[in-house]
């Protein structure tokens, strides 16, 4: 990816905006970079397997050079008392819920960026810092990012977070699907450390087949729903569970790609420049009338 700092970005945007002002706006639709490779990777999370050891939380912090307590401290199960969200200091967290099938074994659910197939953060990013990569990861260029936090608002899963506590150079933070690790043929850190292989890393299409097989062979163990297969237009991370996903704190974003809604509003306002022209015409009309009235007085 091309490196670009904030000053460069401001310069180019100033030049571009003056250039665009004189041109027709027809061709500048801000569509997200739509690279949906057939072999894009994903992770299948089998929540019925997870034991809540939170090793993934530790491995994630180590892989992303975030400050962390020693690994042994993660066996402390009091962390489950509160429902936690991924934050700028912990890109993935595990939450615990009661298990209707067996009260002795709770259901543990790992949460991180879902890596949508049609990411709304990419669509919302006004500087094009975010992108959906060919291998399925949704990543961002810190140097391009201007810290507007539009991605945080746009995300249907409320994943991106912001380093509010940093006065200088705060950054947007979220799971990057270990882009730097997978690039060199390594597994994502959480997948590698999981002792029970709750997380299966592989091509998304194959994972869906495996998930369907699991449901078919164990109809008592799973509900017939692969979360992420269609949610928000499909996500790279897929989940299996033994209870309704609403009960284990998953939102229901619908099956349509999220950018569809936001973009139609955004683009509708400026479609063919008709609404702005219409709006200015009304303002002009009012001005003209009031001016006439004053003249008449």
């Amino acid at each position: 990816m091309q490196k670009q700092n904030r000053r460069d970005f401001l310069k180019t945007s100033a030049i571009l905006s003056t250039a665009i002002a004189g041109l027709s706006t027809n061709k500048t639709k801000a569509k997200p970079k739509e690279i949906l490779s057939e072999d894009r990777m994903g992770v299948l999370v089998d929540t019925t397997v997870c034991i809540g050891c939170r090793n993934c939380e530790w491995a994630c912090k180590v892989a992303h050079e975030l400050p962390t307590k020693p690994k042994e401290s993660y066996s402390d199960r009091t962390a489950f008392k509160k429902l936690r969200r991924p934050s700028e200091g912990a890109l993935t967290v595990v939450n615990e819920f009661s298990n209707p099938q067996n009260l002795n074994i709770p259901t543990d659910v790992k949460v991180q960026c879902m890596h949508c197939d049609h990411p709304s953060c990419v669509s919302a990013c006004i500087v094009g810092a975010m992108s959906k990569e060919e291998n399925g990861s949704v990543i961002w260029d810190t140097d391009k990012c201007i810290g507007c936090r539009y991605c945080m608002v746009a995300c249907p899963f409320q994943v991106p977070s912001f380093q509010y506590d940093k006065a200088l150079n705060p950054k947007i933070m979220k799971c990057d699907f270990c882009f730097e690790r997978t690039k060199i043929g390594k597994l994502p850190a959480c997948v590698e450390i999981c002792p029970v292989e709750t997380l299966t890393y592989g091509p998304r299409s194959e994972l869906i087949k495996i998930a369907r097989d699991k449901i078919k062979h164990n109809p008592d163990r799973y509900i017939d729903h692969i979360y992420g297969e269609n949610e928000a237009g499909g996500t790279s991370w897929l989940y299996l569970a033994n209870q309704d996903f609403a009960k284990i704190a998953f939102p229901n974003p619908g099956d349509k790609p999220m950018p569809g809604t936001s973009e139609s509003i955004q683009h509708g306002i400026f479609a063919y420049f008709v609404p702005p022209v219409f709006f200015y015409a009304i303002l002009g009309g009012i001005m003209w009338i009031t001016k006439k009235r004053k003249e008449a007085e």
């Binding site: 034991i51 074994i105 002792p195 029970v196 292989e197 299966t200 194959e206 994972l207 495996i210």
Partner: peptide
Amino acid sequence: ISKPDLEAAYHQQCINCHR
């Protein structure tokens, strides 16, 4: 990837009863 690796197979088999 249709079946767990050895580490996961052992753990999945043992851990649920033990915990």
